[in-house]
Amino acid sequence: MVIELSLSGFAAIVLAGGQGSRLGGVDKASIEVGGRTLLEYALDAVMDAGEVVVVGHQVPTDRPVTFVREEPRFGGPAAGLLTGRDALLRTFPTLAVLAVDMPRLTATTFRRLHEAAVGHEGAILTDPEGRRQLAFVVETARLDAVRPDLEGQHGMSVRALLADVDLVEVTPRGDEGRDIDTWTDLRDAAPDLPDPDGP
């Protein structure tokens, strides 16, 4: 089965449960840039989603989202993704997945990913050097088919989880493929963050 274009038929999972070790253990979701938290930027990027689950600490927000903690705790992004998928109240044809530390992602990014995924099992954003980022859409049934058991999720990378999934790679526009891993990244982020009132 492959993805058909439907921007109303997807749920979103925001991965916000990392340890932020290069930022001194700070919870990335609550970090403010330009007066807004990284979580707010992430939620803006998936505003088209029918349901949103945030995997990580609960952060104040007026958005209708569900917060869960990954299982196993600090088990890595694959464990977080699958925990988020299990927390969804409804089943959607596709899932949009993003890391909370990519504030340059926008709703337009995920529309492009959905368009690119048509005829495939998903689509994933790369950085300018072609490395796959934690920003992708994937067919829900295909993700369910490749998931390991609970023990196998611990420490698994998303790359390994999706190794057998047909993901088309999508080149970033501008800096949308950049993430925030260090204080330098954070310092440099504010000037080019997306306008919350923009497209």
Rank of each mutant, 00 (worst) to 15 (best):
L88P: 06
G152T: 07
Q133D: 07
A96D: 00
L143W: 01
G152H: 00
A99C: 09
G75E: 06
E139Y: 12
P60S: 09
V170L: 08
R131T: 14
D192E: 11
G50P: 05
F136D: 00
Q153D: 08
V2W: 13
S30F: 02
I31S: 02
E51I: 05
A49L: 05
G18Y: 04
K28G: 12
E40I: 03
D144L: 15
H114V: 05
T109V: 03
G17I: 11
P128T: 03
A12H: 03
D86S: 15
A87Q: 03
G75F: 01
V14C: 04
T109W: 05
T106Q: 04
R69N: 15
L81F: 04
G24Q: 04
A189P: 02
H120C: 01
M1Q: 12
G198P: 01
D144F: 04
T91C: 08
P194S: 03
I124Y: 09
R159I: 11
R73M: 13
A145K: 08
A87C: 02
V100Q: 01
R36M: 11
D149H: 03
D144N: 11
Q19C: 15
G75V: 09
L38H: 08
A99T: 14
A123T: 03
H120S: 00
L5K: 13
D185Y: 06
G155H: 04
L89F: 10
L23F: 11
L161M: 11
T182K: 08
E4V: 14
P191C: 09
Q153P: 00
M102S: 11
Q19T: 14
V55G: 04
L113C: 04
G18P: 03
D27A: 13
E4P: 03
D149L: 09
V46M: 05
F10N: 15
T37D: 01
L161F: 13
T91Y: 00
M47N: 14
V97G: 03
A135E: 01
